[in-house]
């Protein structure tokens, strides 16, 4: 197990180095950071001085090396636009994104699993038809459109929920949370649904098809023959056995929920890291972009590792090959 983890760790380092390199090559095409940092009328000499001070005149491999070597020491540089350490800025904004991601993941699971079970058990129910229609919407409509539709209905027409921002937040030991105030909770509803809807439909469809398959398998027949209650059969045996793919997908999707929160955060002006990244792209704030991409790469690598380990825990039939 330890060897496996170490091997995975080395692999992930390589992945992150490559992500960093690709990111750095791409930054060449994003635009000139200096143009975004000074006013239009700033003189060429002042611009040149700034470029030199930022180290933008150094050759690309050199810039990459400088970035990687300081990133290895936990220093992601200073934002061009905000003059603050990027690590601190990511830390400040991370709470907003993680809160949103977790709430939407919980929403996706809590709604997706029961809906999946229900549609698998009662195939001809009207409710099943309704759930499947909803899932079609969730899977086919792009996130930003769902967000705007929700804003239109619940903020503009009904005026029940806010259309942007986080509401009031409370600071607890450096972690700002909107979960403790009523305006914060209200502000969380629409973005969480927007972000979680796709995951919810995915989980629902996954649970449904897995469940239907397992309900046809022999051990379920035997369980029924033993005279177990339908409840024990469905939830004790069938549902438990559908959980493996659900864990995988949920784990991997948690990564993409955080990574793709960009769109939801933009639509709802949610002050998380996704919005910060998007604004950094517009402002050519290279340190933020680089750090964000590395962080997301790390997240995916890390979640993959956790999922692999969870497999072993949940299903003893899976063994990790000896390295």
């Amino acid at each position: 197990m330890l060897a496996f983890i170490i091997k995975r760790f080395v692999q992930s380092l390589v992945v992150m180095l490559v992500v960093g390199l690709i990111a750095f090559v791409m930054f060449r095409f994003v635009g000139d950071p200096v143009d975004q940092m000074v006013g239009l009328e700033t003189s060429i000499e002042d611009r040149e001085r700034l470029r030199e001070a930022l180290g933008l005149n150094a050759p690309l491999p050199m810039q990459y090396w400088n970035f990687i070597s300081s990133a290895a020491q936990g220093d992601f540089g200073t934002s061009y636009q905000f003059k603050r350490p990027v690590a601190v800025m990511l830390g400040d904004r991370l709470s907003a994104t993680l809160e949103l991601a977790l709430v939407s993941a919980i929403f996706a699971l809590c709604a997706g699993i029961p809906m999946g079970v229900f549609t698998a058990l009662y195939k001809d129910s009207v409710l099943t038809k309704l759930f499947q229609a909803v899932s079609l919407v969730g899977i086919s409509l792009p996130t930003f459109l769902i967000g705007i539709l929700l804003i239109y209905v619940f903020s503009v027409q009904l005026q029940w929920l806010p259309s942007f921002g986080r509401g009031e937040v409370v600071d607890i030991a450096g972690w700002s949370t909107g979960l403790l105030t009523s305006s914060g909770l209200k502000a969380l509803i629409l973005p969480a649904i927007t972000l979680g809807l796709f995951q919810m439909t995915l989980i629902m469809r996954l649970v449904r098809s897995e469940m239907m398959e397992i309900l046809r398998s022999d051990f379920i027949k035997f369980a029924r023959a033993r005279g177990l209650t339908p409840r024990a059969v469905h939830f004790g045996h069938a549902l438990k056995n559908t959980m493996i793919p659900v864990i995988t997908i949920t784990g991997l999707q948690l990564g993409s929920i955080i990574a793709f929160a960009i769109i939801t955060e933009t639509v709802f002006q949610w002050p998380g890291i996704g919005l910060m990244f998007l604004q950094a792209v517009q402002d050519v704030d290279v340190p933020i972009m680089a750090a964000y991409l590395l962080m997301i790469a790390f997240l995916f690598v890390f979640i993959n590792l956790i999922v692999d380990i969870l497999y072993v825990v949940v299903d003893p039939r899976i063994h990790i090959e000896k390295a």
Binding site: I148, I151, Y152, S155, V156, Q159, P162, S163, F164, T266, V267, F268, Q269, L275, L278, Q279
Partner: peptide, 14 residues
């Protein structure tokens, strides 16, 4: 920054 959200914030009275 998003145009649609900004307009929605006005329309919703926020």
């Amino acid at each position: 920054s998003a145009d649609a959200t900004r307009v929605a914030a006005l329309l919703s009275g926020e």
